[in-house]
Write a protein that binds this DNA or RNA. Sequence first.
DNA 1: CAATATTCCGGAAACGATTCCAGACTGACC
DNA 2: GGTCAGTCTGGAATCGTTTCCGGAATATTG
Lengths: 328, 328
Amino acid sequence: MAVTIKDVARLAGVSQSSVCRALADPARVRPETRERVERAARELGYHPNRVARSLITGRTGNIGVVLPDLANPFFPTVVKSIQTRARGFDYAVFLSDTDEDPAVEVPAIRALAKQVDGFLLCSPRATDEDLRSFAGEKPIVVLNRRITPFPSVTADNADGMRQVVAHLHALGHRDVAYVAGPRTSWSNRDRLRGLRAATAARGMTLVEAGNVAPTVDGGAAAADLVLAAPVTAVLAYNDLVALGLIKRFQARGVVVPEQLSVVGFDDILVAGLVGPPLTTVAIGKEQIGRVGVDLLLELMADRDSTGTARRVLPTQLIVRGSTGPAFR
Amino acid sequence: MAVTIKDVARLAGVSQSSVCRALADPARVRPETRERVERAARELGYHPNRVARSLITGRTGNIGVVLPDLANPFFPTVVKSIQTRARGFDYAVFLSDTDEDPAVEVPAIRALAKQVDGFLLCSPRATDEDLRSFAGEKPIVVLNRRITPFPSVTADNADGMRQVVAHLHALGHRDVAYVAGPRTSWSNRDRLRGLRAATAARGMTLVEAGNVAPTVDGGAAAADLVLAAPVTAVLAYNDLVALGLIKRFQARGVVVPEQLSVVGFDDILVAGLVGPPLTTVAIGKEQIGRVGVDLLLELMADRDSTGTARRVLPTQLIVRGSTGPAFR
DNA sequence: CAATATTCCGGAAACGATTCCAGACTGACC
DNA sequence: GGTCAGTCTGGAATCGTTTCCGGAATATTG
């Protein structure tokens, strides 16, 4: 059936061990045998069975990526950069989408645990306690969330909010609303924290509109709540929510940004394409993935090197057409 | 270190074989031993090592998904449905993004081959010949492309184009342009084929504007070519290209749809959110993934059952604001 | 040339599960 | 009670690779 190391050994007239050595570390065999082995391997089309290898070495050459929702354009971008970076180091990527369900996360991680060398948990929704139960087992790097004792890569949400608030304040806004994302999302909590601090620092009032799903529909669902509040601008948990808000505002005849300014977060691709183009906060999505992989590789190489490195990436306000002077 | 079947056997006071049987098929052991084994397993937190299992059984419980570009919103949607469906059958998903590079595809498949039970190739860009070299090796189902001898799941592109052409014809359009996607894309060729037939059937003229990358930038790059042609409507290979076209049209002061109608393909989420909302052809993206998984599972269960099943899913024209009466 | 160091190679033991095979035990029946 | 069928269990082989260990061959040195 499949061609094994034995077949190569037989054809090359050497032992398994030599085949293994010749292919793994050519310096450890005589040039002549190396040549023989390589020829035999090529002739038979031999590719070592990674499964068998990982059984003995304990390494799989895979990393597991767990995320809440691939339908949110933010995540594919991160996954792509992870995948690209990982490929560069000969790692393959296992993907698990938990559909925003915290309960699915732990089993998903468990299921993958034996087949990967480490995990990249993207915006995990599980409780701190559940996540910490994996602490000793496998190298884990967490993205978009800070939780000891794992290394993490996050965006500087607070600074992003500071920039947004400064922008809105300069436009004359004094009363703003925040449409919150999932309660289980650390980013949501971090953004809200940053927003509270920033508005408080400028003496602005902040209305918090319930938690919604981080989707267009979620945003649309909160739009009417926002309209009922005495605010001139609304910040959304992320761009999808912001787009949902705008969609519903338009349906209600509310003109953005003349009557109401809207700000998103993430700067997903479509943010710049909609009408009006969305003012938002850009995060280095590719950078998150790349840095995450690098951290994980370090961690896997040396279990307690970067033990609890915390990389915080800068954010950048992108001003587009969805914000304007406060309506009076 | 990790807890193995031996540890469980020792604690339960039975042999490895019994532990294995007790966990795999409880009916094959006495209820009492089953109880003992289960308790021991629970106590030790035992989870069978899937790597070791797959070495002996030859099955991995994984499926490999290869696709050209996760940054195109079409693919995450498909991947998500694949992932969801696969999880339902206890399969994990390996993901490989080839970045639209046909040369990366074959090595990517090879690399994953030993760790998966089958492949779902999403819009593969490699040549027929290269792909066929995998024919005997692993179960493969191809999505968005038809290529013997693999089972495939495709959208009815021709019918979608027929619907678009009928729509445009009714609006008075007689001269239309097509902005083609990658030459390596089967969908692109299939759509063009369908479009040629549909326009010919109605005596309309068709201008073909070069091949571009299937991205917003690709569309923007072709916009000026379209404006230079004597057409009143333009069809794009996909929604991203259409959005790129519109973006550039707006920059050039061309009003859509008053001066030029634009039609996309795929109906990605953002198509309905941009201004003007995009007329496009909807494909059952979730369905593609789901049906693909089902086909693959059948194929894996019985190597030559669905040998060369070809599922063609319906397409549906979605009329939105980017098309209107022909400009004269 | 002898003694020693070095290189290179083959045999065999792992890794952790599954599975075949045969033996031990149970119960039923004559 | 003896025989037989059937159930349940443990031992051992197996998957394909890596790696340890010791022996043979070669090179180095005095």
